[in-house]
Amino acid sequence: MERSLLQRIKSGDKDAFRTFYNQQIDKTLRVAILITKNHELAKEATQETFIRVYRNLSSYDASKPFDPWFYRILTNECYRIMKKEAKISTQHAYIDPDIKDSSIKTDDYSELNEAIQSLNELYRIPIILKYLKGFSEREISTVLETNQNTIKSRLHKGRALLKNYLNDLEERGKKHV
């Protein structure tokens, strides 16, 4: 986030926060859907994230990058809401087929999305933050409040699991031809 916009928000400028919200809402919702695997839970997590950011912006350390701070709040909200939902309901979460990331080719999207969604959240969330959001391992460790070497290990294992999953899909596709 640009520093001037951040300063305006901190000074109570509601138009500046509205600008920030409009700039971030689509990306934030996409990440929340990838984490929660549920469009409605993702919308709730996204809404709560913006509320928490607005209320707690005074605690943000401007000497550090903003995005890891913001996405740590989003990730924590997703976890909190998924945990709450698990207690309330046993309904199965679903993948929203309308979610697309501009860095993924449309033809490859469904298989890649299926592969990412098949991962345990331990590997799925670091993969999303690294390859869909472009965060460094250090930033991911900040977001997830986990040791950087643990993140590297989870990314390595996640990539291997994705590769195996996609290879299995390809093999099954060849058998049906």
Rank of each mutant, 00 (worst) to 15 (best):
L29A: 00
S110Q: 14
R124Q: 08
D67T: 13
K14V: 12
D67I: 04
E77I: 05
K87P: 04
K84T: 15
D67G: 00
T106N: 14
K163Y: 12
Y94N: 11
K130Y: 05
S102C: 06
P68C: 09
R138A: 13
P68M: 09
P68N: 12
I140P: 00
T19H: 04
I125G: 05
K87S: 14
D107R: 12
T28A: 07
L144K: 01
L112R: 06
K175H: 05
K43L: 04
N120D: 15
L57N: 03
R154F: 04
Y165C: 09
E48G: 06
K157C: 03
S141Y: 01
L74F: 00
L132T: 09
K157S: 11
I104H: 00
F66R: 01
T19Q: 11
I128Y: 03
K14A: 13
M82N: 05
A115D: 12
S102G: 11
S58K: 14
V31Y: 04
F17Q: 10
P126R: 07
S103E: 01
Q7I: 02
K105D: 13
G173H: 08
N149V: 09
R124D: 01
R55T: 10
Q23V: 03
S103V: 12
I88V: 15
K157A: 10
L155R: 08
S102K: 15
K10G: 03
K27I: 05
H92D: 12
S11N: 11
L132K: 07
V53Y: 09
D108C: 06
T49L: 08
K84F: 05
Y109D: 14
E48S: 13
K174D: 11
A160N: 06
G134S: 09
E40M: 07
